[in-house]
Write a protein that binds this DNA or RNA. Structure first.
Lengths: 126, 126
DNA sequence: TTACTTGCAAAAGATTTGCAAACGA
DNA sequence: TCGTTTGCAAATCTTTTGCAAGTAA
């Protein structure tokens, strides 16, 4: 993988693999600490930094409170529930029309749609 | 305006009016403190909370480091330079196709496109 | 072996809160 | 006047960093 596969990193990778929850660093810390009681936040953050750099996971910024992480690599977008902060993947198409000067001036790496709203559960409650 | 128009709030509003910089709370604090040397962070944050709630400004979450604020109320999207963190408005059209079940389950309040890339200045340098 | 990684604690940075004094309506 | 707002400091929360000890390759 281009970096040392320590047991801690393997545990984090296993927790993230196929995970649709878009967990925060703390969620990951709490979950993985069950296997590794000595696991520290520093290790979680440094592992996330490595995985992010190697493009094995995405760091999401749509939750205003904290960063969330996503192991889904297929191109997709997200919905966030403004009430419970649950994040849901969206795989539909999306398009954005950029003006000529925008396309000329800004070199685009990627684009991402954030949909804000209420999830089914919170819609019932409110 | 439905809340007390204190000189501090007026100064913050004036600083934000027509501002295309997408300033952070600290940017606003530094700028407005020139007029009000006693201005505190607490006042900036509480004013921003009021303006946000009254939908007079938008709180942007696309800068991973801190929240940024935008007085532009017309529907638009944003580009962020991953190098210098400059945020630029985009007024083009955008569309996102949601599946039937997505539309049925999630009540959408708004959607927003974040484009990541390099701004003209940073593209030259890199 | 050895450079990379871990774990702890402390630090940093952004944001929030408690509360008494000040003030706009 | 009176309820809201300010300003200060302290607190909170997330994330980062320094460093000695441990470990994968």
């Amino acid at each position: 993988m281009g970096c040392k596969l320590t047991p801690q990193r393997i545990a984090i990778l296993q927790y993230l693999d196929g995970n649709k929850e878009h967990p925060s660093a703390e969620d990951i810390y709490k979950a993985v600490r069950r296997k590794f009681p000595t696991m520290s936040f520093a290790t979680v953050y440094s592992t996330l930094a490595v995985l992010k750099e190697k493009k094995i996971i995405l760091e999401l910024t749509l939750d205003p409170d904290k960063k969330r992480y996503d192991p889904e690599l297929e191109d997709h977008n997200h919905m966030i529930c403004i009430s419970c902060k649950r994040i849901i993947d969206i795989f539909g198409e999306h398009s954005l029309t950029l003006s000529k000067s925008e396309r000329r001036n800004f070199s685009v790496l990627n684009s991402h749609v954030e949909v804000r709203g209420l999830c089914p559960e919170c819609r019932k409650t409110t």
